[in-house]
Structure formats: C-alpha cells, structure tokens
C-alpha cells in the first residue's frame, strides 16, 4: 500500500500559491491602546502586578491577574540580553543590527529594541536609555522609540 517512486527530478510541478495575510488589523486592547498613546507622547508604560512592574503592559499579569497601568519613570534601563543579527534566515548578509531585550531597572520584562552602539561595546547589564523620534513622526508604535542609546 505504497506508491512506487521514480526519479522525477526536472519533472516536478508546483502549484504557485499566495496566502493573503496582509490585510489584517490587530486590536491593541485596553493597555495596548494606552501604550500607543503614551509612545506618541514620548512615554512608556508598564503595569503593576502585586509588588512587581511588568513591561510592556498587557492588561493581564503573567499569573492571569488584572494589571494596573503605571508610568515607567526609570531614566536608565539595562540590557538584559542582546544579539547581533548579521544574516537573515536564508543566510543572506544584512546590515548588522544590535537587538536587545532592554528592561527598566525596577521592572520585569522589558522591550525588544535596537541598541545604537557598536556590537563590540554591548554587554549584559549595560545601562541604556530610550531615544524617541521627533514628536511629529510618532505614530503610536514601538518604532516611535528610535533606539536605545548607552546611558
């Protein structure tokens, strides 16, 4: 109960296809909407869950409880971990990107973002701070933060 298989190289047919996934809107949700407004405003929000502040705010805490929105007022953040991307998944070289999970000193979680520093000068525990785009260029997105720079 199995097909005999013959050498088919050069005789392979594919049906070309395209998944239509471009037209999708993502509801930001309660905390997400507040975060979007805050980013436009040059601010970053977190949420208080018991005695801990988590970034970003997601309405629900990691333990499933309700989170309470708070302003993140830390002037300095730390690099919790980082990587340097020099190739895409297909192996093509790309302009090196220093990507980090940056965390407010007094919070858990953090944000994925770029660190504007030489790859050799980034380390875990490094102090950084957010640099926002000029106000008129902000759109309520995570990219309203241009990057994090060494503090």
């Amino acid at each position: 109960m199995s097909w005999d298989k013959f050498w088919t190289s050069g005789n392979v047919k594919h049906y070309p296809g395209k998944m239509e996934v471009e037209k999708y809107v993502y509801t930001p949700g309660i905390h997400g909407l507040e975060m979007a407004k805050a980013l436009k405003d040059g601010r970053i929000l977190g949420m208080r869950c018991g005695g801990t502040i988590y970034v970003p705010p997601r309405t629900f805490c990691p333990d499933g409880e309700k989170g309470e929105l708070v302003d993140v007022t830390d002037e300095e953040w730390i690099v919790a971990t980082y990587t340097v991307v020099t190739r895409d998944m297909y192996g093509n070289p790309v302009k090196p990107q220093v990507v980090a999970l940056v965390r407010p000193i007094d919070a858990e979680g953090g944000l994925f973002h770029y660190v504007n520093a030489d790859p050799d000068e980034v380390w875990i525990g490094m102090r950084v701070r957010p640099v926002f785009k000029p106000e008129k260029e902000r759109k309520g997105l995570i990219t309203d933060i241009e990057y994090f720079e060494p503090a």
């Binding site: 998944m89 990107q97 990219t143």
Partner: peptide, 8 residues
Amino acid sequence: LGVANPFF
C-alpha cells in the same frame, strides 16, 4: 521593529 532575522 523589522529585525532582519526572527532567530534573533
């Protein structure tokens, strides 16, 4: 963010 490789 447009990171160039999701394996970041």
